[in-house]
Amino acid sequence: MPRPLVITRPLAQSLALAQQLRDGDREVVILPLLEILPLPDTSALQAVLAQLESFALVAFVSPNAIDATFARIASWPPSVPLAVMGEGSRRALARHGVVDGPYRITSPLDTQRTDSQTLLEALDLSRLQGQQVLIVRGESGRELLADALRDAGISVQQVAAYRRAAPMLDDVLRQRLTDLLELEGDWVVTSSEALQVLMHLVQQVDAESGVDKIQRMTLFVPHRRIAETALSLGFRTVTLTGSGDEGLLTALQSTP
């Protein structure tokens, strides 16, 4: 019997991947560990989007940042270069008609290391010196990209486009987690924050043995930093896939 596969990405990002996997014979469970929510006040975001052409580069930290931005603009100015972390964000841009050729898009060259550090390695920092870069992100996040750009003599402005929240542990979620902890399954986790949320929820659901049970599951993660977090949390089997759905699909479809 195929192992159940648990996809923990936010709901909107889980559906397409789940559909592709359901075309096979795997039992697929969607269990979002982070909810993507709108900002209570979008005035700061709207103000900065009104002056996009004043930036030498606009960097998006995630597909969510891209979708939230393009929901508020008619089109992207071709003169403004973009930077993204990985293939998932490139696909998000493509959904909005922004692709290489008409637009200049920079992303990490190593698809297994798609993070702020590898994006910095791909950027021409000397060209950006003395100019202004915009980073579009969630309400909170790592400061590595902004700090490194500032250290290189680049002016940085950051703006929030969405917020993340852990799901409420209601009776339905409690029962789903209880059931999943009893099964030997594969889990797709695509952020370190979601991994921390998972551990917190498991401890609440089964304080005695829940942590040991979840640590025995096989994790599929798209970034090295998430793999390092998983190993530090005691997970025994962590598979590092390539960036984007293609890398996940390849790894998952090769698992019996």
Rank of each mutant, 00 (worst) to 15 (best):
P2C: 13
L5G: 07
L5F: 09
V6A: 15
I7K: 07
I7H: 08
T8S: 15
S14E: 00
S14G: 00
Q19I: 11
Q19R: 15
Q20S: 02
D23Q: 05
G24Y: 05
G24T: 14
D25N: 14
R26I: 10
R26Q: 13
E27A: 10
L33C: 12
L33R: 12
T42D: 14
A47F: 06
L49K: 07
A50K: 02
L52R: 06
F55M: 15
A59G: 13
P63S: 07
I66F: 03
T69W: 04
I73M: 01
A74F: 09
S75D: 06
S79Q: 10
L82D: 15
V84H: 11
M85N: 13
G86S: 14
G86P: 14
G88T: 08
S89Y: 06
R91T: 06
A94S: 01
V98A: 00
G101E: 08
G101P: 10
P102F: 02
Y103A: 00
S107E: 14
P108E: 01
D110E: 01
T114E: 02
T114G: 08
D115A: 11
T118Q: 00
E121W: 06
A122S: 07
L123H: 07
S126A: 15
Q129Y: 12
Q131N: 14
V133Y: 01
L134M: 01
L134Y: 01
I135M: 12
G138D: 07
G138V: 02
G141A: 15
D147G: 08
D147I: 01
A148E: 13
R150V: 15
R150P: 07
S155T: 09
A161H: 12
R164I: 09
A165V: 08
A165W: 04
A165R: 05
A166D: 02
L169Q: 03
D171Y: 00
R174D: 09
R176D: 12
T178I: 04
L180W: 08
L180P: 09
L181P: 09
E182V: 09
E184Y: 01
V188L: 06
S191I: 05
S192W: 03
E193D: 13
Q196V: 07
V197L: 02
M199N: 13
H200I: 00
V202Q: 03
Q204S: 10
D206A: 13
A207R: 00
A207V: 05
S209L: 14
G210K: 12
G210P: 12
D212Y: 11
R224I: 11
R225S: 04
E228H: 10
T229K: 06
A230T: 00
A230F: 06
A230L: 03
L231Q: 15
L231R: 13
S232G: 10
L233S: 00
F235Q: 13
R236M: 01
T237N: 06
T239P: 10
L240Q: 09
G244C: 03
D245K: 03
E246D: 12
E246K: 12
L248I: 03
L249Y: 02
T250Y: 10
L252M: 05
Q253G: 08
S254C: 04
P256Y: 03
